[in-house]
């Protein structure tokens, strides 16, 4: 079956590729354009490791075909730090030891990036509910929740400053 031409904007850069329609967005990011920060953990839409922002909204890149997203704006974990400087959420992850093996981390960061954008002052319950879409086997979540709440405060302080 024929290949199809698509253009996706990923982290502000346009990528035009001829691809097999069945290629998932996750595989497109990882293997077609070499952005391997997005990880595939289950390929059936439960673990959330592959979460990216699709036109600003979190989504599982294993449950989307790249052809569906022709013309879309995709944001991945690679976009978070600026010039190698960790952003506030990333810093909070390091300070609170919110990652161990680091495999689920990119998905966690993308989910929380959306959450903190849409809910600048989330409750712990909202953080935990929202993280329900991201599995972590190493941390037991506590440090991730702490990091998210701390980041919310520091982002608020940064906005006021």
């Amino acid at each position: 079956m024929g290949k199809q031409k698509v253009t996706l904007r990923v982290n502000g850069v346009s990528y035009e590729r001829e691809i097999d329609p069945r290629m998932t967005l996750g595989d497109f990011l990882r293997h077609e354009i070499g952005l391997t920060g997005t990880h595939l953990g289950c390929e059936h839409g439960v673990c959330g490791a592959c979460t990216v922002l699709i036109n600003g909204l979190s989504g599982r890149s294993c449950l989307a075909f790249a052809v569906q997203e022709d013309g879309s704006e995709i944001t991945t974990v690679e976009a978070l730090a600026e010039n190698g400087e960790l952003n506030i959420l990333q810093q909070c992850f390091q300070e609170h030891h919110a990652l161990q093996c680091g495999y689920c981390t990119p998905g966690m960061l993308m989910t929380l990036t959306e959450l903190l954008r849409d809910n600048p002052k989330p409750s712990e319950k909202l953080v935990r509910d929202t993280l329900g879409g991201n599995l972590c086997r190493c941390t037991g979540y506590a440090a991730i929740v702490d990091a998210a709440l701390d980041a919310a405060q520091r982002l608020a302080a940064a906005r006021e400053a």
Partner: peptide, 9 residues
């Protein structure tokens, strides 16, 4: 219904 990421889509 599902999770944030699945309700988005």
């Amino acid at each position: 219904v599902g999770h944030r990421q699945t309700r988005n889509r």
